[in-house]
């Protein structure tokens, strides 16, 4: 059972990684002059949209969190609206935090905001898919021994890796190498993406290695 779940997790995560790689490669066939560095904003949009659609589809297909109770249609709609509001709020919050960390306040607002959207896609959207608009559950998952399934462990790892990647992405900005990827926010968004991808790959492996120690207690 556990092995099968881990395999499913691995497949899903590899699909995610594959999608991100595709977002970097495929648009160049349809759109002349598309590169990640050159048309970074376009790539940010494409990547966010693709990753979020894929995540939603995976969530609908795999249904990792088994909610036994059937809910009404109105309830679903309200849940969906709540999710949208939460996502938007998280974008704003990320934007504010990024600015407080030293990003320019007025110039390149679009870049900063799209970067915030990307970060939200990698972190908040995952939580929303997995846990729903239930802050209670979020708090539980992001504390020690809080994960209750391998999906939640994976969520922990990918979120932390994405944020760490974005944080490390800020490091090359001051260097005087004059590379195109040192421009704000390219290094940070690339860092977040690489962190996310690394998290996606690390999570199943880590769970596999630690499957003896990981005992998920049910609620």
């Amino acid at each position: 059972m556990k092995e099968a779940e881990i395999r499913r997790l691995l497949a899903a995560n590899l699909l995610c990684v594959f999608t991100i790689v595709l977002t970097a490669v495929v648009p160049a066939f349809f759109w002349d002059g598309f590169t990640i560095l050159g048309t970074h904003l376009a790539w940010l949009c494409i990547c966010s949209v693709c990753v979020s659609t894929l995540n939603i589809i995976l969530h609908l297909v795999l249904k990792p969190n088994l909610t036994p109770k059937r809910s009404s249609f109105a309830h679903k709609i309200s849940r969906f609206l709540k999710c949208c509001i939460y996502f938007f709020m998280s974008c704003i919050l990320f934007h504010a935090i990024i600015v407080l960390y030293g990003a320019p306040l007025i110039e390149s607002v679009t870049e900063t905001f799209l970067f915030a959207v990307l970060l939200s896609t990698f972190t908040t959207l995952q939580c929303l898919c997995m846990l729903g608009p239930n802050i209670q559950a979020w708090i539980r998952v992001f504390s020690k021994n809080g994960a209750m399934s391998i999906w939640e462990s994976s969520l922990q790892i990918t979120t932390i890796c994405s944020i760490l990647g974005a944080w490390f992405g800020a490091f090359p900005i001051p260097l005087d190498w004059d590379r195109p990827w040192q421009v704000w926010p390219i290094s940070c968004s690339l860092g977040a993406t690489f962190g996310y991808m690394a998290g996606l790959i690390i999570a199943p492996l880590w769970i596999h290695w630690n499957r003896k120690q990981l005992t998920y207690k049910s609620r």
């Binding site: 960390y101 708090i139 944080w167 001051p174 260097l175």
Partner: peptide, 28 residues
């Protein structure tokens, strides 16, 4: 480059330190 940019490095690290502190408290 980092010595030149230290005026931005120190606040960045300070903010990270405090955020990490809060994150750690939460994690525990």
């Amino acid at each position: 480059s980092f010595v030149v940019a230290e005026a931005r490095v120190a606040p960045f690290l300070l903010a990270s330190l405090v955020m990490l502190l809060i994150g750690k408290l939460h994690w525990d």
